[in-house]
Structure formats: structure tokens, C-alpha cells
Amino acid sequence: MSKSPEEITTLVGREVYSNNGVFVGEIEDVRLNLDQQAVTGLALGQLNRELFSETVQLGTGVIVPYRWVRAVGDVVLINDIIERLKQPEESEEVVV
């Protein structure tokens, strides 16, 4: 018996973590390219406030490009690039 392909709606509700194990958010919807019949992004809500407090207003979500996805299982793993949002910018010295 062959396993049938999963419906993309099964992604909704799954938690998203970075490769380093940091919680990013929960999938609320998917962005599709109908011409290519491919998922192009994941719309996340229930965001990790530590990661997004500086860049996203409370109560809003973000769309993560699907190319960042590394693994899909009980949870979705994405590149750790998302954690760079939280890191303080390198000190920039102004040269006069």
C-alpha cells in the first residue's frame, strides 16, 4: 500500500523551529504559486516575541519563504537565519 501525498492543509497548526531549536511561530496558512503548483511561503502567527518584537507589531504575523524550510515532520525546521533578527546589529563606528 503506497502512502498518498499529504494535503498542504496538514501544515496548518504545526510549530516552526529554527535548526538551533528556537521556536519561531505556528503555521496559520501557506502561500502558493498556482502556476507552478508549489508552496512558496509559510504564514506564521503566534510568533516568538523575542525574535520579532523589534520588527513585527503584536498581533500580526510574518511570511517565511519556503526555501528556508529544511525539514517537515511533526514540526517544521527552518534555517537559523531567522534568529539573526534577534541579534543586535554589529556596532557601527562612524568615521568623521
Rank of each mutant, 00 (worst) to 15 (best):
N33C: 08
G21M: 00
I78R: 03
W68C: 06
V95W: 08
V16W: 04
P65R: 09
K86D: 13
G13F: 08
Q46L: 11
T10A: 10
P5A: 06
I82S: 05
G59S: 10
E92C: 03
G13Q: 08
L51F: 01
A43Y: 10
Q46I: 05
T10Q: 11
A71L: 03
F52W: 08
Y17K: 07
D80L: 05
S18D: 03
I82C: 04
L85D: 06
L11C: 01
T55F: 14
V94S: 11
I27T: 09
N19S: 11
L32E: 10
D80K: 12
L47H: 01
I81F: 09
V69H: 04
V12K: 12
T55A: 12
G41P: 07
G41F: 05
Y66M: 11
G59A: 11
Q57S: 13
L51H: 06
K86N: 13
V30D: 02
V16D: 03
L85K: 11
V75P: 00
W68N: 07
R67K: 13
G61M: 06
P65T: 05
G59K: 12
P5D: 01
L34P: 06
E6L: 12
N20D: 15
A43H: 06
R49G: 02
P88T: 11
A71R: 15
V64N: 00
E7T: 02
V24Y: 01
N19W: 00
G45D: 04
T60Q: 14
V69G: 04
V24Q: 00
Q37D: 10
E15M: 06
V30N: 00
V22H: 03
L44P: 02
L11K: 01
G13I: 08
A38M: 14
R14I: 03
